[in-house]
């Protein structure tokens, strides 16, 4: 039931339907839509169980991105928008989900989603997106106990990594592996600002460093940066990494090494849907409340 749309983009768009659920009529159906800066996800749950999801890139128009993502998630299921009993919008474009009953911050949704994806033991979640980086601490119910976010500075985000990848002419997907093809781990890039780091990297290349050494030095700098956010917020060994950079082992392994922890493995879920999944789970609570009020 997997479908992938190959495109020239950084990652493939995809959708999924649960082959084990066919009798969804008359059951509780909730949904979550997460509009991020680079990708949008729609998740549909039937009685709290994952029924279908889609993961697409965000267009220039948020409401349209939400409509597209949900339409694709619904595609081929026989379900329509009218069957969704409660929908929550989240992410930076959350106020622009036209069919949502409510919108909730991505931090709350993310924690709740991670609680499902990694199990209730997860306490610390690091989410590294295209334009931000978040450290979230939560309890066994997936309720946020503290959070810290940085979306001001591109260092420590996917965009910073892309800028370096572009400069070196290295495919973003190859960075992780190539960053380990060094004899010895070099010193991290010292400039924190992406603009200055680019100048520093150019100078390192001129002085004879290989692309692999530069990638190692930049991945390490990024890992150090992100670890500071983690330590400042609250770090526990039951730790998970989500978001686009979770796929970059060059950064993930270095974070694990610096923090002395191993990131939890997702329990059969695509980690990119964490926010939308959390939103759809919270929607179940909201639907119950609404019904209790007789709405």
């Amino acid at each position: 039931m997997n479908e992938e749309r190959k495109e020239y983009w950084r990652w493939a768009e995809s959708r999924w339907t649960n082959p084990e659920i066919s009798d969804w009529q008359g059951r509780t159906i909730t949904a979550g839509v997460d509009i991020g800066s680079t990708s949008t996800q729609a998740v549909i749950l039937v009685d709290g169980e994952l029924f279908a999801y889609s993961n697409m890139r965000t267009g220039s128009d948020s409401p349209e991105s939400a409509n597209h993502a949900m339409a694709w998630a619904l595609e081929g299921t026989g379900m329509t928008l009218d069957d969704l009993q409660y929908t929550i919008g989240t992410g930076y474009g959350r106020v622009n989900v036209p069919f949502a009953d409510k919108c909730i911050t991505e931090i709350t949704c993310h924690a709740r989603g991670a609680n499902r994806i990694y199990g209730p033991s997860v306490r610390t979640i690091l989410d590294m997106g295209g334009q931000d980086c978040k450290a979230i601490h939560c309890d066994e119910r997936g309720r946020v106990t503290s959070f810290m976010m940085n979306d001001k500075c591109a260092a420590g985000t996917g965009r910073g990594m892309e800028a370096i990848a572009n400069l070196l002419g290295v495919d973003i997907g190859e960075i992780g592996d190539r960053s380990f093809q060094v004899e010895e781990e070099p010193k991290p890039v010292s400039s924190m600002c992406v603009v200055f780091a680019k100048a520093e990297v150019a100078a390192l290349m001129r002085s004879g460093w290989s692309k692999e050494m530069v990638l190692a030095a930049y991945c390490r700098a990024m890992a150090i940066r992100v670890c500071k956010l983690l330590t400042r917020n609250k770090m526990e060994p039951d730790f998970a990494i989500t978001g686009g950079i979770a796929k970059n082992k060059g950064v993930v392994k270095r974070i694990e090494e610096i923090m002395g922890v191993t990131a939890l493995e997702p329990q059969g879920y695509d980690t990119q849907i964490a926010g939308a999944l959390g939103a759809a789970i919270i929607a179940i609570d909201m639907l119950k409340k609404k019904r209790a009020r007789g709405g």
Partner: peptide, 10 residues
Amino acid sequence: MLANYGYEDA
């Protein structure tokens, strides 16, 4: 909840 609002830059 400890809500931290702000940022870190260079």
